[in-house]
Amino acid sequence: MGETFLLILLLIDATVRVATPLLLAAFAGMVAERSGVVDIGLEGKMLAGAFAAAAVAAVANSAWLGLGAAIVVSMSFALLHAYACVTHNGNQVVSGMAINILVAGLGPTLAVAWFGLNGITPALEGAGRFIGLNLPMSEWLAPIPLIGPVYAEVVSGHNILVYLTIAILPLVALLIYRTRFGLRLRAVGENPHAVDTAGISVAALRYRAMLLCGFLCGIAGAYLSTAHAAGFVRDMTAGKGYLALAAMIFGKWKPVPTVAACLLFAFADALQIRLQGVVLPGIGEIPVQVIQALPYALTVILLAGFVGRAVAPKASGIPYVKDK
């Protein structure tokens, strides 16, 4: 068991931790866009969820209540987005951006008013946080080479939300591809007129898609503030919502490639943290900023080079107006 092996395991471990909110948000965006609603407000909904989770968890000293609050708040913002874009045919990008900016200001404002703290919520501890779980058998498996360390470092030791995410993602994929609701959802994103002609409400389908989108973003937000960190910090989503959107586009609006794209971005991020201050043979020390730029630069390069003209769901971004 060399040191390199352990390093790789730690890197994968970090990748999983960074990937969790990205995966949730990317799937949230996928559900929304497959129904024909572009949601650039993933960032804002996650941030709102993060604030709600941290605020409630701090007051009630319960991470689970925080999670519930995050989901409710995030779903409310999703409904607002649906109200603007589906009911009133508003510009979807503008609506998403409005939510992002509104939440970016609202979180710190309420933090000052409710807790008297500048842009943060009180530090969470004990039951207010989701902490890492040691899965059973990790000690029993420990002596076995390869499997033991992999199990201990990569599989075990994450918080419950990571495992919850791993369970939810296949369910969302099944929902989209193997249920009647999913079939209609995909249809309404491609050809809403056909769906309408079949006597199914376009608006109702899109509202339901947005609710699911809000649900997933809420979990992602709670993960950021009550599992990954111990409280809310101003702008703590730091562009993850946009990265998730990029991952979804790179994944061509399909579950498995989207997961791969999220893992790639998360790996770049994990590598970024690991590489700081490391002297590479032949190159010397890489400036911190070059490494920090990795995920963003990667996104631009991938979107420009590999996806090319990505085929979005046909009706994505276009408000549905009955019988023109």
């Binding site: 607002l80 009133h88 508003g90 510009n91 409005a98 509104l102 000052v112 842009g119």
Partner: peptide
């Protein structure tokens, strides 16, 4: 003292929402 400049960001968000996304309301 309970006010920060973040309040201005909130107003911005609301203006974008009502003058942009919800202009048809």
């Amino acid at each position: 003292p309970t006010f920060t400049s973040d309040m201005v960001v909130v107003i911005q968000g609301l203006v974008i929402l009502f003058c942009g996304a919800l202009e048809n309301i």
